[in-house]
Design a binder for these strands. Structure first.
Lengths: 242, 242
DNA sequence: AAAGATTTTTGATTCAAGTCAATGCAATAG
DNA sequence: CTATTGCATTGACTTGAATCAAAAATCTTT
């Protein structure tokens, strides 16, 4: 077993705090000297909700590791119709490998902090450390599974089921108190507006709103101040997912 | 530049003929001795249309490289609603890496021939040859891009646009005469039934059928014997994709 | 705290796609 | 050369979600 840097007590800049979140980030596979080298080239950047991190067809110049917040990946048709094709949470890495251009827009859904790293620096690391490449392959395959699961939701579920699925996804990804297997009294702030949710689910904001109301009336969720959601029993919500 | 085995004139069994198709297969990155070693453990298997290659939640015991034909990846909800979450063409590799179970069903859409290789054999090769891992990462990222593009189609396009998109996808993937940039007199046999197409597009067979008729009446396509499609001008079809 | 802006909800109506039912059309079997 | 069977198309009708239009709630700014 290789020696790992103790991130909590190190004097390395704030890089890689994302690893503390869920131990899925790329830093976990880097050797101490690689981590130090990387930290010389990174910088933390904040984006307030709605700000663009990168645009479709734009050149990829750097990658970004999410420290906290939620990033939405979107695609837009010429006539303005928009689809959110993915949500990224800490400590996901944003930026398309092996491609000189982006294939979609990346935009801060909530307030977001990312750790930006220049493309050549990360690519050098990938060449020298096979574990990093493996980690990236694993992230790509996980995202592929998630995208395919979501295709079922988009193609075959009703509006009611779609909204339940969305809430279930958020509940299991961002509630700080959520632990796998725990299902009582989950609660969280929605990181997306109704418009974003609609674009994620392939619905209109009116339909999203009506389905929120329905879930509230049915006692599956409780809503306060538009964005705060309480889920008394996650199993009920899961049942609503179809 | 490493020496490559001349596949056309070699006495290696039929493995890797897939490489001849589009030079995207995994064989292109294998060294001659690896190719020979691999060929000892592979076998060609034929599946007629509709036959299952592997099932959701089933253990992954082998991978399969498509020699010819189209494989559909599907997911089914408890109540029987089904969604096709991906189509795979030669020379794609089928089977989830780093997972002991499949996450969806793989079924022959048309008649299919695959080259099966046992899981441990391929995994040993991945460990010893970094180029192979890179190739797999590239395939995963390409599939992820395709899945996300498809999410836009599923979430935001009309039935008419969905059907046009599907035909455009097939036209650019399986017409033996299609070369990128050529757009006149494309023609092909549909590898999927109307039911499969409906499950791919999140529609019903009746709606798919009506949209086929509409495209035919509008002169965008010509249909004969249900499955044979002629596209006089691919640009017209592309315009119908929205 | 009031005014203004933005976001969300609710209501009335329309329409695209789904459902149900019948018919057509090939391919294979008898 | 008919049946039978399995797809595919067409027609009539229904419905779930979109659209259009206010109203209500929430957030911002002053």
């Amino acid at each position: 077993m290789e020696k790992r840097l103790d991130i909590h007590n190190s004097n390395i800049p704030k890089l890689c705090r994302s690893c503390e979140v869920r131990h899925k980030g790329i830093c976990g596979v880097l050797k101490p000297e690689e981590l130090l080298e990387l930290s010389k080239h990174t910088r933390l950047v904040d984006y307030s909700a709605g700000k663009e991190l990168s645009a479709d067809s734009e050149a990829v110049l750097s990658y970004a590791s999410i420290m906290h917040g939620v990033v939405k990946l979107t695609k837009m048709l010429e006539d303005g119709r928009q689809q959110v094709v993915g949500l990224q949470f800490a400590p996901d890495l944003i930026g398309r490998m092996f491609s000189s251009e982006n294939h979609f827009n990346a935009e801060a859904a909530s307030n977001v902090q990312v750790c930006r790293m220049p493309k050549p620096v990360l690519e050098r690391l990938i060449k020298s450390n096979p574990k990093l490449e493996r980690k990236l392959l694993e992230q790509a395959l996980r995202e592929l599974d998630e995208a395919r699961d979501w295709m079922v939701t988009l193609g075959r579920k009703t509006a009611a089921e779609k909204v339940a699925c969305f809430l279930y996804l958020i509940a299991t990804h961002i509630d700080p108190n959520y632990i796998d297997g725990d299902f009582k009294n989950i609660s969280f702030e929605l990181p997306l507006t109704r418009a974003d949710i609609a674009d994620f689910l392939g619905l209109t904001i009116e339909t999203v709103s009506r389905q929120f109301t329905k879930l509230r009336v049915d006692g599956v969720i409780d809503i306060s101040a538009n964005r705060h959601i309480d889920v008394p029993d996650l199993r009920l919500l899961k049942k609503s997912c179809g």
